[in-house]
Simulated scan of single mutants.
Amino acid sequence: MSRQALAGMMAGASSATAADGPPRLAFDLNGQGLAMSVWNGDYRSNLLMADLVHADGQPLVIASRILTGTPIAERSATTDMFHDLAAVAQQSGRSFYLLGGTEEVNRDCARKLQDLYPALRIAGRRDGFFSRAEEPAICAEINASGADIIWVGLGKPNEQAFCVRNRPLLRAGWVITCGGCFNFVAGTYRRAPQWMQDAGLEWIFRMVTRPRQLAWRYLTTSPLAFLLLLLRTHECSPTAQRQTHAR
């Protein structure tokens, strides 16, 4: 599915809204998540609860093109998808709730969104620093805002666990995990040059520009992720494809 099709499905005029009940879950998958799914059973179980898993990492797209006859249409990097949905949502009237990041980053992200998409309604926002005991109250706050699309930027595996755990409490069309997306929108993180993104090398750019935060993560997850892509990328059976589309 293309980025344009994803945006239309999630934020278009016919997309699900807050009035439709418990939300659908959309989780991103990249090399870190692929590796984490091997050693973290809870994360793997939560990932399987998603209604939609999209390819946030270009290596996943490249592997699908080389090793299967049903390649992924294109990469849907979460930061790009964030802008795609914002552009569509301001036309359809769908609203956002931003959950995650520091207060400063969350605030700056909301301001940047309003500058870029003046007609977009941001129903509410709050930072990502809270205890599990506070989650029911946070869900009630989100529901009261009437947000149609909830962006959850708490980092893996916390954001997936939050979404699955609180799905019964939430009323929205979609809940979408977004990692550090708010930082990119706010301008505190930089994207890699386009050629590195296209070549599946954005992780190297991030590791070099933020070595203290990311060097260990990428050095420990990227080799395993590449091995998994090589050994486990295969065609889905017709039955599996039907089950995937029906979720």
Rank of each mutant, 00 (worst) to 15 (best):
R3D: 04
A13P: 07
A16H: 13
G21M: 10
P22H: 10
R24Y: 04
G31Q: 11
G33M: 09
G41N: 10
Y43V: 01
R44N: 08
S45E: 14
S45Q: 14
A50N: 03
V53H: 05
H54C: 08
H54S: 11
Q58F: 01
L60N: 00
I62K: 11
L67M: 14
G69W: 04
G69L: 09
E74G: 00
S76G: 04
T78Y: 07
V88R: 07
A89V: 03
A89Q: 02
Q90T: 00
R94S: 02
L99N: 01
A110K: 05
L116S: 11
L116Q: 12
Y117H: 15
P118T: 04
L120T: 00
R121G: 03
F129K: 09
F130Q: 03
S131W: 03
A137T: 11
A140G: 07
A144F: 01
S145P: 05
G153I: 03
G153D: 01
L154Q: 00
K156Q: 13
P157N: 06
P157F: 06
A161N: 10
V164C: 10
V164G: 06
P168Y: 08
L169H: 13
L169T: 03
R171F: 00
G187A: 07
G187H: 09
T188Y: 12
T188E: 15
Y189I: 02
P193L: 03
Q197P: 03
Q197K: 12
D198A: 09
G200L: 09
E202R: 02
W203F: 11
M207P: 00
Q213T: 07
W216D: 11
L219R: 12
T220Q: 14
T221P: 02
F226Q: 14
R232S: 07
H245A: 14
